[in-house]
């Protein structure tokens, strides 16, 4: 198999990840005809209700350099483990309102199983290993820190 030199790519986008940019990303793959399966995960900010208060947004901060490196390591591992054609990962920084997209993972492979499994693997690894922090903002302007289960 052809070996490509891969370098860390910045994963962060300021604010929400737009539906338009996701559409463009999908369209950009139509020329890669060796692909037979895409798997996409999109994280959306949920309007959780806690003790009568509603989440209206999540504000994300991160140690960007460390997070980019952590995600790069996850990418490399995913390419090793699964037969993948390409992979795109974006995470929001700053405020993302409920209903908006804060995480976009896009994995492409010749076959569906590899795409499915890799996407799940990447998602779980990002949640566990990337130093990103979500502050849940409530409708009364108070906040609490998000906890990943």
């Amino acid at each position: 198999m052809e070996q490509k030199l891969r370098k860390p790519k910045p994963i962060f986008k300021q604010g929400a990840i737009s539906a338009e940019s996701i559409g463009v990303s999908i369209a950009n793959h139509q020329t890669k005809t060796e692909i037979g399966a895409h798997n996409i995960f999109m994280g959306q900010v949920r309007a959780d209700e806690i003790e009568g208060k509603k989440v209206v947004a999540i504000e994300y901060t991160a140690n960007e350099e460390l997070a980019n490196e952590a995600v790069f390591a996850i990418r490399e591992k995913a390419f090793e483990k699964y037969d993948l054609t390409c992979m795109h990962i974006y995470h929001s920084l700053g405020e993302v309102k409920v209903g908006e997209i804060c995480l976009f993972i896009f994995v492409s492979s010749p076959r569906r199983n590899a795409a499915n499994e890799a996407c799940r693997y990447i998602l779980e690894a990002i949640k566990k290993d990337a130093p990103i922090f979500g502050k849940e903002i409530f409708d009364d302007s108070t906040h609490q820190w998000k906890v990943n289960n």
Binding site: Y60, N63, C102, N148
Partner: peptide, 30 residues
């Protein structure tokens, strides 16, 4: 968790002058 000069600390070691330390609470991306 701690990172020193943007490397996660796994086992203990002595710090050097001008080291940059990140103090990281539980991660909650996604």
């Amino acid at each position: 968790k701690l990172a020193v000069n943007n490397k996660m600390v796994v086992k203990d070691f002595d710090l050097n002058d001008c080291d940059e330390i990140s103090v990281l609470p539980p991660f909650s991306g996604g």
